[in-house]
Design a binder for these strands. Sequence first.
DNA 1: CGATCATGTGTAACCGGTTACACAAATTTT
DNA 2: AAAATTTGTGTAACCGGTTACACATGATCG
Lengths: 325, 325
Amino acid sequence: MVTIKDVAREAQVSVATVSRVLNNQGYVHEDTRVKVEGAIKHLQYRPNNVARSLFKKRSKMIGFIVPDITNPYFPQLVRAVEDVTNKAQYTTFLCNSDENLKKELMYLESMQENHIDGAIIVSNTLQLQHVDNVNIPIVALDRFFHDRIPSVTIDNYNEARKAVRYMLDRGCKRIAHIKGPEYIENSKLRQMAYEDEMRENMLPSIICNGEYHLKKSEKALIDLLMLYPTIDGVFAGNDVMAVGALKAASRLELKVPDDLSIVGFDGIEWTETVSPEITTMEQPIYEMGKRAATMLLELIDGKGINDDHVVYDTKLIERETTKKQ
Amino acid sequence: MVTIKDVAREAQVSVATVSRVLNNQGYVHEDTRVKVEGAIKHLQYRPNNVARSLFKKRSKMIGFIVPDITNPYFPQLVRAVEDVTNKAQYTTFLCNSDENLKKELMYLESMQENHIDGAIIVSNTLQLQHVDNVNIPIVALDRFFHDRIPSVTIDNYNEARKAVRYMLDRGCKRIAHIKGPEYIENSKLRQMAYEDEMRENMLPSIICNGEYHLKKSEKALIDLLMLYPTIDGVFAGNDVMAVGALKAASRLELKVPDDLSIVGFDGIEWTETVSPEITTMEQPIYEMGKRAATMLLELIDGKGINDDHVVYDTKLIERETTKKQ
DNA sequence: CGATCATGTGTAACCGGTTACACAAATTTT
DNA sequence: AAAATTTGTGTAACCGGTTACACATGATCG
């Protein structure tokens, strides 16, 4: 391995001078700079970032904890974060927590040990106390974390109400809801929104559990539709379950949207891969990832952030699973 | 930050002793061990992995270069790699190359600078020379790289022939192929297999270009079917394009599989989210990721690997887009 | 009972960078 | 022309660990 000493010897200067050239700071005579750069090129020298991190206490790495990268909501988020951080010369390391506190804590420790400069976290299980003794900037993404932890989210409650209201506007009366897991705050908020909107319209709520899971929501909806065949609309707690709902309709040979309207939530690509394409509340997923990453970099650079809690709007994408006005 | 010196002072021993306790090696008296462990717990000490890496020249980090994490083939691969490497106390850092040589080289450099212990690479653009001056173990995944670089792949050519043969067996005669990008070796092999299998059965080839892209393949197939409405089968170069083909059929109100059979390739989850579910040649994606990661760890540990080039079989999953025998 | 070996611990060099500080030479200011 | 400042470079301490080596003590053995 070529070290800074080798370069110094080759260029007949001290290591300090080489370091100055590398970091482009302090005084270096033009002739010396040329000599050193020549030596660097000649020896194919690459500075050792580990040594550098040790001294500077900056690793140029950030961590990203997601529940599960195979969940189709997350790849875009990861991509966005990577795009931003890489542009700023940071590398991202990825952790799948499976919504499991133990794993999350393990990852946080590992991040600490590796001198990570900051972290982005999608979690409902982590508590303030857990991240408090990790002494690095943290941004919460997709899920609100704590007043003191900056976050990038959407307003799940109000956007979900909009979705239900839209279905009501389009003439649905007997709308069912496929809910996600209760321990996920977002999922709970969407359910509450559905219930409140229905209640305010003097309509009964009817809910089944899809667990954020395609097959489970398909099965749950089939069972529900057998019991209550007059259901004319389904608001799914997320797109994965909306796809499940569509499959259920297909199994039961219901026409979508004529017999049954379906609205999803999230705006993942799956909703466009199926026929008919699914109407959904689209989150600006990539944009959210970008924003979180940008905020994190600012925090790392010690810049205060103006709006610590960014809340994005969703966009109703009218597709083929709801009736046109 | 609590350092090893703080612990040494607290436990009234030398740093060497603390280090011995931490690494569980060398002689340490039981009483001393207890004292040190007490101090560690008391001070909440966590060793600094950066310092450790600097001396040991082992960072306990591995790199993973994929073309694009938002491509639905890759998340499972990433997940598998992470699961294996994390179990061995490694962290994984992820890089999206966009099949772009410049980015790949940039990432390789960054890995070198960060003293990465090894890398897994999905690439067609990188050449041996590029990875040769990076002096770390490398495993190629999904795509064959070079004789000297261990790899985990499938036999694209023969498995694709099986797929076409299966369609012929099921009575399809006028089978078209939606091909992927030519610069991707796997895609080229699958196309060749299609052509060879058709030729050997005295049947003409008919090919359109889907670019591994849903919308493009949908459009390409619609155009093709307009010109040649008697096509009775489509072998898609991957599942994403098979989904596109299914949408095309739906647009043209063709019945699948009665009017048109469709077979995909890869075995990604998308094929199960649509109706009808798509028949596909399933790759053991998770298994492949696991294997590649395991091989890499062995290489890092200096163990020679017996079979440097692992080739997995695919499995024909008969679903609803092909006729039952 | 002296030699040999296992056990237990500390000192200091080392990993590969960065930078505070010292100092000399060149340049500018007064 | 002397003083002050800017420019250019090297020495050595430092970041937080690991480990070779030295040394002391106690146990084992012929």
